[in-house]
Design a protein around this nucleic acid. Sequence first.
RNA 1: GGGCUCGUGGUUUAGUGGUUAUAACGCUGCCUUUACAUGGCAGAUGUCGCCGGUUCGAAUCCGGCCGGGCCCACCA
Length: 821
Amino acid sequence: MAPENSKEGSKEESSRFYDPHLSEPKWQEYWEKEGIGRFEPNSDRRIFSIDTPPPTVSGTMHMGHAFAYTQMDIIARYHIMKGENVFYPFGFDDNGLATERFVENKIGRRSTEMPRTEFVKTCLRETEDAEKLLKKSWQSLGLACDWTLNYRTIDEHCRRVSQRSFIELYNMGREYRKNSPTLWCPECRTAIAQVELTDKETESQFSEILFELEDGEKIHISTTRPEFLPACVAIFVNPEDSRHSALIGKKAKVPLFGYSVPIIGDAKADPEKGTGIVMCCTFGDQTDIEWWKKYELPLKIAINKDGTMSELAGVYKGLAIKEARKKIAEDLASNNLLVSQTPMKHTVNVHERCGTEIEFLVTEQWFVKYLDMKEQFIDAGRKILWHPEHMRASYENWINGLQWDWCISRQRYYGVPFPLWYCKKCGEIIIAEDKQLPVDPTESMPEKPCPKCGSAEFEPERDVFDTWATSSLTPEIMLKWKEDSSFFKKMYPMSLRAQGHDIINFWAFNTIVKGTLHTNEVPWIEIMINGWALDEHGRKMAKSKGNGIEPAEMMQKYSADALRFWAASAKLGDDICFSEKEFTVASRLMNKLWNASKFCIQHIAGYSPEKPQDFETIDAWLLSKLNCLVKACMAAFDNYDFVRVRLDAENFFWHEFCDEYLEMVKDRIYNPGSYTASEINSAKYAIYTAMLTMLKLFAPIMPHITEEIFSLHYSEKENARSIHAAGWPSADEKLISPDAEELGGIAIELVSEIRKFKSSKGMSLKTEISKLAVECDEAMQGKIRKVEQQIKATGKVKEISFEQNDGQLNQALAAKVKIEV
RNA sequence: GGGCUCGUGGUUUAGUGGUUAUAACGCUGCCUUUACAUGGCAGAUGUCGCCGGUUCGAAUCCGGCCGGGCCCACCA
């Protein structure tokens, strides 16, 4: 049963203003309780499944969330209304660093103070409360998602799926462990992946340092990182560079440290940069790594995992990188070894999470081998329909630039553990049995002795997975991969992925990687990419800038429907600037919808919809326009173009329906005695159908107010418990009539002429016109006669007379009018 | 340096070849008309970023330039 409407007064006397604060929570509760749009696993209706983004459990719902989830929900609701079996779950991402911090703050203890399994249990417990609140926030947007399909990326099921994924890839030979230079964050003290890098412009010093050759010759090398001197393993010059090519083959002494390194010629040394002589250190940048491999140079590790100088740095040991940089430069200067130091700006790679400059350290890490599969990933991207299409370009651009396999091990404590041990005796890797999953190897042991050497002593892998290694499995998680194979087969690939453009490289790409590797198929048929919510000046909203606007506040001030209306004003993929104006516009539209529907229903009370044989001209005009609109809206929705729907539906409703049609139909409504029964029936049918259809067109965008109006006036007649379950309107081609549209257009033009006349004279629109004389040809006369009655009634005109005319006429009307009061 | 994207009245924006360029907000004047003054009617405001080309015809297609944004690369 639909809830009682809590306003005083009956259905007929619905109040003057719609109150979203009473209505919205009521319907949200109703939808959840009634399971409106809930997935039915055994139904054979067409399935539409959505891979929705699980928000991080750490903070609250911000404007960007509200914006993105609304756009997704509009699409979901459209499919629900079309009668599809919509699979629309909602998950929480609670296995990342942000959640770890959140839980630590909440319990006042560090994660490392307890066994890992205990911390995971604590997280499951603590985040449960937080998720209840988050659910309320998200629900307050009026999302139609199915909360019974909820998942959490740290729950047992997700950990199991994640570990299974690892094991399958390992068995396929797609996972390997390697001791090699990797991207390292000294602040977070973990390896990271290429995708976690970001640019940062930094102030720096360009130093020119004096190196002495063994034969006494002196050369100048340029560097921004003098602290790497103890890790210098070679000097490079370009063999084409006539200034320096003679140096090749000689040896140089590293200043302050005194040992000798070879001078090598390589095309990668850029004569244009600095002095054209560059030192190669292990490892200052990626070129260093290349040279180190190519020329089999020695490995000198000057930097520790915590970002301090190593033993190798001698007296500089223990200094932080930046301190060492300063100190070494000072010592070079005092020994006359520093030729010059010029301040400069350059961009460096930093860890996107903490902003720390990354280093290249040699550590033992697990990788997913995928650089050999770039082509396949690009092909996979091309099999998916991207909305908007151009977003695929950034996906391909990213793949083309990939140069590292996916490093998935993190030297962190909290996360999904690697399901494996190493044999203490022979080093063999022992993978957990499937029945052990999810497993924490620091808590359990392999079930059998080492198959290679028979030893029963094992060392657990203590690293955890990159959080994206788990969140890239959302389709597998939701579709019960390897747990319910018939369900998985039926549901995979999913219909749609929804996400932001900022994580194409992360989430979309990684999910396609996992999908391709595990199923050899793309994970979804289509993908919709939303933009960002920016502040009113187009800047990113950020807590630190203090320019964030709380969605809850805006919903309190206006309504969830108003917020959704704003969110529907930006095309998919476009960023949106916050604009309070849109909220005002929405509130006015809602008021107009409320009042127009109240008016309509008042005058067709007790009416049971019955389609007439013939329509009055003006009704035929309305219905023709309406059916064109329905067609256009459906096409627009199918193309993810809800902006078009919003625009067209609003214009049609406000101007064509309210300003023109309702004004013209009022005479029939107020003075039914002057009309025939069929003329009255025609009006009632047109009013009923048009109003209901428009409500349905607006329903995906503004689900609450449309539901409220539907429940008051339509649910009984339509025999539906919700507008969202009442079916999507289908266009009636037979009602589309260019002739009717032409006649309606003529009536509107003439009424407009009358209004112009009254307006220019400062008259009330009620003023009676004694005569409207129209000059036009005979064909036009005939047309005007068909709408004469409507014009007279609407324009308060007593008489319309015609005069023959063959000359110059008003183009829009092919007629000329003279008006007499 | 590469890729993508945007540039239309004061503001936001529709419009991907066809008569006079869309609408909203704001602005001006009028109208207390029995759904709504959170309303209605009327009006003012545009060299459609700049230059060139294709075309009978360009906001729209092509080329170049200028300016904004995003992503990637480089980063001695």
